[in-house]
Design a protein around this nucleic acid. Structure first.
Length: 592
RNA sequence: GCGCCCGUAGCUCAAUUGGAUAGAGCAUCUGACUACGAAUCAGAAGGCUGGAGGUUCGAGUCCUUCCGGGCGCGCCA
């Protein structure tokens, strides 16, 4: 039960009554009326802006409306007081019992507390990672993977039906380049080239990928095929073979990395399969029939004409009709499709599979690409499809403040494996979600393992572990008590009276709002801040008991109050566990 | 040059998406351990939200413009 949603509907009902009696105009739009927790706790328990947002449409002063509403709201269930404040806010004070009943909800629903009604928001497709199968996953991919996965879990929790998807860029020039690089490493494995030869080829740009991660791939190819491809001269023959071999090898590695990170996709879509099935041709035919493609010549970008610029007629998509700055090429000069053409086909494919609500998680370096894909989606769906692109900024990897250098070209970059080996899956996942994704993130090996309040993953886990340790002790202290969630739900929660105890219950009551808000905004990181806040309150309460012993959770002489407080401790634990589940992080039973 | 993102306490970041007196942590200062694990907690101090205009009951949030930073800008993906 979402307390704020409950009061939103009660407030709406009061407005409806007043309208029915003629005190307010009928048919007011209540969409902007909100029932929220006030920022300032001293303002009460629930605040509403109703009087202010209705002032203009109702043609009355905010305070006048507020006074009308306050008189009625005082009589609404659970309200102990209502008052007008500031420019027309209405502050409601509630019976503490409402927070206690919120805690009972947590105990009876467990970690599904805060879930939206399944399917209430329809279907949605989240595409993330989509790393090129040309090398191992690095930190940048890891951030996208975690953000996408957490967002998908969050959306599911809020009541979306979610499909998690990965787009494999296994067509086009990059995978051919990898095939050529693999050929060099293969010849090296056969003893026909030296390391110096390979580095020379790299410097002369004869091959584009030089990382030694291709060495084991070459060994594997040699193990399978011997020297079968050593003498092959026709690159139409050997490139497809080596390319497919690399792609398969890399995708296997990528999937293993994702598995180790706890990321699972429902669907893997292959660009090559799309091309082979003729879907790119179909999609472009679709746009052509709609009159949205033409052959034209693009102007060079203003103020920055590339050295080798030459005007060239190309097949273009009329992206400007859908909000993009320029029309975008869909065909290369050699007649093959551009990457964008493939992406048009891919997004059409998603739409054809029934998805009109799409989210893509990309690296920030693809920011310039967003508008054209959104334009394409509008063109493909007659404006009905929605595509939100969440861009992930850089991750700076540090060790005790020292930057760890990354360069994919030189083959030295921080891989996802490095991260996992260094700090573990749960820490990687949590830290990646402690910033909004469009802000750069510092990932410091040393700091994320620190056991201090500065380290949010530790701080939140510590709160959970502390709660568990109370239960271990409680079982010894009250062997006969029913400490199951169901048993605690029956505890006499009226024994929870301290303002800080009620404060924790307030935060717990805010969890469903937080989940829904974060889901609709596509911002999973909000849950990290929520969990930190809840942990902070819990630690505060714990420590208060150090000085005021009557506030300690366990009172050996008073099982009734102990059980009420255990219910609170359990509620905190369940909400934290529920947030960590969205993050794909295991709550710990004890700190080691 | 153009487009997108960003600019909040000395530092790292929040701010319920347009709400009330802009909040946390670190660092600084002051306190609390014969403990429910102090790996923590309580308190103090710290601000012209980059600058200037505008929109309205109300702006860190929206619009315009300038300054500063990041990313990108036709046959890479």
């Amino acid at each position: 039960m979402n307390i704020f949603a409950t009061f939103k509907s009660r407030i709406d009902a009061v407005i409806g009554e007043l309208a029915a009696e003629g005190a307010l105009p009928a048919g007011l739009d209540l969409a902007r009326v909100a029932a929220e927790p006030p920022r300032e706790a001293s303002h009460g328990d629930v605040t509403t802006n109703a009087a202010m947002v209705l002032a203009k449409p109702a043609g009355k002063a905010p305070k006048e409306i507020a006074n009308l509403l306050v008189a009625r709201l005082k009589k609404v269930a659970d309200v102990t007081d209502a008052s007008v404040a500031g420019p027309g806010f209405i502050n409601l004070k509630l019976n503490d019992e409402i927070w206690r009943s919120g805690l009972r909800d947590v105990l009876t629903t467990g970690t599904s507390y805060g879930d939206g009604a399944p399917g209430q928001h329809g279907v949605i497709n989240v595409e993330y990672v989509s790393a090129n199968p040309t090398g191992p996953m690095h930190v940048g991919h890891a951030r996208g993977a975690v953000v996408g996965d957490a967002l998908a879990r969050l959306l599911a929790k809020a009541g979306f039906t979610v499909t998690k998807e990965y787009y494999i860029n296994d067509a086009g020039g990059q995978v051919d380049h990898v095939a050529r690089a693999l050929r060099a490493r293969y010849l090296q494995a056969l003893g026909k080239l030296s390391e110096e030869d390979v580095q020379g080829m790299l410097q002369r740009k004869e091959i584009m990928y030089g990382g030694d991660y291709l060495v084991p791939v070459a060994e594997a190819l040699k193990a399978r095929d011997g020297d079968k491809w050593a003498a092959a001269t026709d690159d139409k023959v050997w490139i497809p073979v080596l390319r497919d071999f690399t792609v398969a090898y890399m995708m296997k590695a990528v999937k293993e990395d994702l598995e180790a990170l706890g990321v699972h996709h429902d669907v893997f879509s292959s660009e090559k399969a799309l091309v082979d099935a003729g879907k790119v041709d179909d999609a472009l035919k679709f746009l052509e029939n709609a009159g949205l493609t033409y052959t034209g010549v693009l102007e060079p970008p203003k103020g920055k004409t590339p050295d080798d610029w030459e005007p060239r007629p190309q097949l273009l998509f009329k992206a400007t009709q859908f909000g993009d700055e320029v029309d975008r090429p869909v065909k290369k000069s050699d007649g093959s499709w551009t990457y964008f053409a493939g992406d048009i086909a891919y997004h059409k494919d998603k739409v054809d599979r029934g998805f009109n609500n799409l989210v893509n998680i990309w690296g920030a370096d693809h920011g310039g690409y967003v508008k054209r894909v959104q334009a394409a989606l509008k063109a493909l769906t007659a404006g009905k499809g929605a595509l939100d692109v969440q861009l992930c900024q850089m991750v700076r990897v540090l060790n005790n403040g020292e930057p760890v250098k990354m360069s994919k070209r030189a083959g030295t970059f921080v891989t996802l494996r490095d991260l996992l080996d260094e700090v573990g899956k749960d820490v990687v996942r949590f830290i990646m979600l402690t910033r909004k994704n469009d802000a750069p993130l510092d990932f410091d090996y040393a700091k994320v393992m620190e056991k201090s309040r500065e380290n949010p993953v530790f701080y939140v886990q510590y709160a959970h572990a502390r709660g568990r340790s109370v239960f271990r002790l409680a079982k010894e202290m009250f062997p006969a008590a029913d400490l199951s969630d169901g048993g605690l739900a029956k505890a006499d929660l009226a024994r929870l009276t301290d303002p800080d105890e009620i404060g924790v219950l307030r935060t717990i009551a805010n969890w469903p709002r937080t989940v829904e808000g974060a889901a609709l905004a596509h911002e999973p990181h909000r849950l990290a801040f929520y969990m930190y806040e809840l942990a902070s309150q819990f630690h505060g309460l714990w420590n208060k008991g150090n000085e005021e012993t009557h506030l300690r959770f366990l009172q050996p002489e008073d099982q009734s109050v102990s059980c009420a407080r255990l219910a609170l401790v359990r509620g905190v634990g369940l909400v934290i566990a529920s947030g960590l589940a969205v993050f794909g992080v295991e709550p710990v039973e004890e700190m080691r």
